[in-house]
Amino acid sequence: MTGQGFKSLTLIGVLVIAAAFVPFVTNGYWLSIAVTAMMYIALATAWTLFSGPTHYISLATGAFFGIGGYLVATGMSDFDISFWVMAAIAPIVAVVLAALIGAATLRLSGIYFVIFTLGLAEMIRGLVSWVQNNFLGSRGLYVLTDFTEEHIYWMLLGIAATVYVIGWLIDRSKLGFAMKIIGNDEGVAKHLGINTARAKVILFMITGFFSALVGVIVAPRYSYIEPNLVFSPEISFMVVIMALLGGTQRLWGPIIGVIPFILIWETITVSFPNATTLYLGLSFLAIVYFLPNGVVGLIESLTKRGRAS
């Protein structure tokens, strides 16, 4: 197990180094696809960190992502604070929020949590609009920086790699062990004396931190932030679909899910520009029906069968 673990970490290390060279090989269109893919890899890996072991489908990604993007924009536009200061503040705000949500919902069984996160992005968008309307006023929120696509790509790659390493460390810690037991049977975990609520909240906070950080990094790419655009529920669903396609039992599952999904999505967009939502729904159905354990599950069951015969 330990040997296997280090092997996968080394493999990921090699992949990260290879990925870092992408901007030298291409720019323009393929780089913009790579940036989008890297954004979803970071988000989906962060999502898997929490939802993989707990089996709770979190739809909170859009909320955290939005907090990152919105706070950077309002900090730079309304208060003239530098990008880097806001980049430090925004994820911390997301962590506090994750702690509050977690404390309120994760003590209950999973279904309450899922329903709550479903409306979370919309609720925060409403809250943000209310604050803007009553206290700040709105002058259009601009995030004008000198970052190029290359810079954004490398920063996102850095986040994705960090999330992976943290996930790898958690997997080998007491917390990771506790999470595995909770995922298999929460009742048993409680009887063993594991503080299940605390363990879940901590993991949810880590997910929130990195999702917000991705929002921060992507904000300069959008340049102009409207609450509507960053608090979009679509992003939460896309992340869930991609993570499920890859498979959530392994932390590297989402990486396998995101890349083919982005390429297929792109092909659909180019070939059937008027029916993309339909295909998004169909692919969701197909994944849940045919690949309940994702590509990772398929690979693992195939290798097992291969070994048995």
Binding site: Y29, S32, R221
Partner: peptide, 21 residues
């Protein structure tokens, strides 16, 4: 012509596609 689905990420990709592909 491409549809950006009122989504900035899609829009950026589509403009890049026009320019470089």
């Amino acid at each position: 012509a491409y549809d950006d689905k009122t989504n900035p990420t899609e829009h950026i990709k589509a403009v890049q596609r026009l320019a470089t592909q």
